[in-house]
C-alpha cells in the first residue's frame, strides 16, 4: 500500500497533494517528463496506458493516446519502460478495463507489481463490476491498489460502497464531463470535495478539468489535493518536454504550498 501510505503521510503533515498525469509512450523523452514531474514536487504520478477508445477522456488526452499508439506504444512497452523509473513518487497507471481484461487480471497485476507500479485507475470499471469480475481481489493479492472514482451523480449508498473498496486514493470527479481543460473550477468541485471528505479517511483528490495553479489551489482547499492531466498533456503535445513539464508542475506545487 505504497501509494496510499505515502499520500496519507504527506497529507498528515498538512501538505496538499499533487498528482500529475502523463500519457505513457508519448515521445522518446516521456520517462524524463515523469522524472521532471517528480522533481518538481509531485506526490505521485499517473501514467496513462493508451487505449483506442478512451470514453472518459476529452480531445487532449485522446490525441495524446492516439499519438502514442501511432508510434508503437503497447501496454507491455509502457509498463516495461516505467519499470526503469527510479523516482521517489509512487506511480499509478490509468487505463481502460479492456486492456486489463485482454491481458488477464493476474498477468496485468503481476506486470505492475514487478515494475514497481503501485496502483491502477480504471475509469470504465465501476465498483460493482470490479467486484463481480474479481479485479480488486487479484490486484490486492499482488499488492496493487485500486483507485476508484466518485462523481457528482454518485448516490450516497454507492459512495459507501466505493469508499469501502477504494485504496490508494479516492478520485473525486469535479464535474459532469470528461477530461479536458476548463476556464474555471466547476461549481460542483467544492461540494464534491466536502462530500467525499465527510465520507472517508482515504486521501480525496479532485480531478477532471483542473487546469491552472489557481484552480488547483482553490480545489485543494475542499479536499486533500488534485490530479492535473490535460493541462500538462497539452503542453507535451505542443512539443513541450521535461523542462516545460517541470516548470508547469512546479507552478502547481507553488500554488498548493502558498
Amino acid at each position: 500500500m505504497h501509494l496510499e501510505s505515502t499520500l496519507r503521510a504527506s497529507r498528515d503533515t498538512g501538505r496538499k497533494l499533487l498528482v500529475p498525469y502523463v500519457t505513457g509512450g508519448l515521445g522518446k523523452d516521456w520517462l524524463d517528463v515523469v522524472r521532471a514531474c517528480s522533481d518538481a514536487g509531485a506526490d505521485a504520478i499517473e501514467i496513462g496506458i493508451p487505449f483506442s477508445d478512451p470514453v472518459m477522456d476529452g480531445v487532449t488526452i485522446q490525441e495524446a493516446s492516439q499519438r502514442s499508439l501511432d508510434i508503437g506504444a503497447t501496454p507491455e512497452s509502457v509498463i516495461a519502460q516505467a519499470s526503469e523509473l527510479d523516482i521517489a513518487a509512487p506511480i499509478a497507471v490509468m487505463t481502460y478495463y479492456n486492456i486489463v481484461a485482454h491481458m488477464g487480471h493476474a498477468r496485468f497485476a503481476s506486470l505492475l507489481a514487478n515494475a514497481g507500479i503501485d496502483a491502477a485507475i480504471l475509469p470504465d470499471l465501476p465498483v460493482d463490476e470490479m467486484k463481480r469480475g474479481g479485479w480488486d481481489a487479484t490486484a490486492r493479492s499482488h499488492g496493487v491498489e485500486c483507485v476508484l472514482l466518485a462523481s457528482p451523480t454518485t448516490t450516497d449508498a454507492r459512495l459507501v460502497e466505493i469508499c469501502a473498496a477504494a485504496s490508494g486514493f479516492l478520485y473525486a470527479v469535479s464535474l459532469l464531463g470528461v477530461t479536458g481543460e476548463r476556464k474555471g473550477l466547476a461549481n460542483t468541485a467544492a461540494s464534491m470535495g466536502a462530500r467525499l471528505k465527510a465520507a472517508t479517511d482515504i486521501p480525496v483528490l479532485l480531478g477532471v478539468g483542473i487546469s491552472t495553479p489557481e484552480q488547483a489551489a482553490e480545489a485543494s482547499s475542499h479536499c486533500d489535493g488534485v490530479v492535473v492531466g490535460s493541462a500538462l498533456v497539452r503542453r507535451l503535445l505542443q512539443s513541450g518536454g521535461p523542462i516545460e513539464a517541470h516548470k508547469f508542475v512546479a507552478s502547481l506545487r507553488a500554488a498548493l504550498d502558498a
Binding site: M56, Y97, P123, D124, E129, P152, T153, T155
Partner: peptide
C-alpha cells in the same frame, strides 16, 4: 453484457 461505464453514468 453488464455495465462498464464511467461512474457518472451509473445513476442514469
Amino acid at each position: 453484457g453488464g455495465r462498464f461505464v464511467p461512474e457518472t453514468l451509473i445513476a442514469a
